[in-house]
């Protein structure tokens, strides 16, 4: 099971990285979102994988999942929303102002390489 979670993190990271290196704003936003998932899950997995024992205290229960990464990731998820909203707004503002959603400056015609 650990292998599956690790590979899922890897695949999310790879997909996120690939999309972040695209030329338009929208795929980059998608890529950043994927990277956010990957990082959050990675962070969460720092508390290891526990099934069926949430960190809510119960009488007679001794084993709980690690609450600390959960608390950190919870705020990370909310902050990630704020960050996504800001970069979407920046991308949108740039597009509305220039009618162009390329991220490279100056605009490239061919490749993603920005030689002046």
């Amino acid at each position: 099971m650990e292998f599956l979670v690790a590979s899922a993190i890897g695949i999310l990271t790879a997909a996120g990285l690939y999309l972040v290196m695209r030329l338009r704003t929208f795929p980059i936003i998608l890529g950043v979102s994927l990277l956010t998932y990957a990082v959050n899950v990675f962070f969460f997995s720092a508390g290891h994988l526990t099934i069926g024992s949430p960190p809510v205290l119960r009488e007679g229960v001794e084993i709980y999942a690690d609450p600390l990464p959960q608390a950190l990731v919870l705020t990370a998820i909310v902050i990630a929303f704020g960050m996504t909203a800001v970069i979407v707004m920046l991308g949108l503002g740039a597009y509305l102002g220039s009618d162009d959603d390329h991220v490279n400056d100056p605009v490239e015609t061919d490749a993603g390489e920005g030689s002046k």
Binding site: V5, G10, T13, M21, S45, H48, L49
Partner: peptide
Amino acid sequence: IRGRDAVIAVAGGVGAMAMSYHYL
């Protein structure tokens, strides 16, 4: 260029996976 990006992305993914796997 897409090939280059794919190589970098896969390398990054493998790195992230290896790290989480060892950590877990």
